[in-house]
Design a protein around this nucleic acid. Structure first.
Lengths: 157, 157
DNA sequence: GTCGGTGCAAATGCTTTGCATTGAT
DNA sequence: ATCAATGCAAAGCATTTGCACCGAC
């Protein structure tokens, strides 16, 4: 079994909280997702696996996992929160296509060097970061280019 | 007056929309805030200036300003959206103290170089980015205050 | 005079919470 | 046995929307 469960269990015990079957199932569901997920998505994944957990418990457990340092909020858009498994992983950054919504994860060691240098210059101690690039994927930019030239067309009119 | 008004006006006209007094007032309110703001805050700022604009109009105008490329959503936390004036400014990044919540803005040309290189490698076209560092200030608000005012110094330059 | 804009209040949708019941230790 | 966790439904809260009146072009 994933060592993450042990990490979570240890955290819960340290807080005087219980390691319940629901919490175990939710963490396993998150491991299945392996990457970025949202609450609703996770709920569906759990249902698919025959684990009937309530939405309230999913949200409560997500908050516990954040407190335990196992996942973080990724904040891609203002509509809803996306979460990301981070325990024991290099910080993952994201590139989002503004047109198609396509998401690409990447790891950039240089970014961490830069981050740490910026912190050092101001005398701060780096803990974590969020880096999201908004860009146009090759397909996406083609669509935008078409839309723009159409717009220019009507501007002239 | 700020050329931003002209930019907004031009955008609105290109979309067949009207440049109303409310929209002008809201944009001016945003210029007052000069930096990061949230909807509620902007509403209060407007009320303070004697401009009675409804919340609905503030939100609708914020969305137009985003579409016009004048402001962007900053997404610091999942509770509510923060917005940021960006038109004609170098992309501003943020460092947040995990203890005090203090926010420092900075500009990093190297980050943009890095960003553009990452995009080029994948064949994407960069449009914007969000970079937030979560860190700990060294030993209290005195040092943080110094860093902020230093940042403000170089902003004026 | 025409549409689009505004304000209000109601609706929306994600997330949280109160409460009675269930379950881990 | 105890005390926290769960499920449900209701509440919260930022943001959006429907609609009747108002105002920029």
């Amino acid at each position: 079994m994933a060592p993450l469960c042990a990490v979570f269990r240890r955290y819960l015990r340290s807080q005087g909280l219980k390691y319940t079957t629901e919490r175990a199932e939710i963490l396993e569901g998150i491991i299945e997702c392996d990457g970025v997920f949202e609450a609703e998505e996770l709920l569906l994944e759990l249902r698919r696996g025959g684990h009937d957990v309530s939405k309230a418990t999913v949200y409560r457990t997500i908050n516990l996992l954040i407190a335990a340092g196992i996942i973080i909020q990724a904040l891609f858009d203002s509509k809803q929160s996306h979460y990301q498994l981070i325990y024991g992983k290099a910080p993952r950054d994201h590139m989002v296509c503004l047109h198609t919504g396509k998401l690409v994860e990447f790891v950039s060691p240089e970014l961490i060097v830069l981050r740490d240098r910026i912190c050092r210059e101001l005398g701060w101690e780096p803990v974590a970061h969020r880096f999201q690039i908004y860009a146009l994927s090759p397909q996406g930019s083609a669509v935008i280019a078409a839309a723009v030239s159409q717009e220019e067309e009507s501007d002239r009119g």
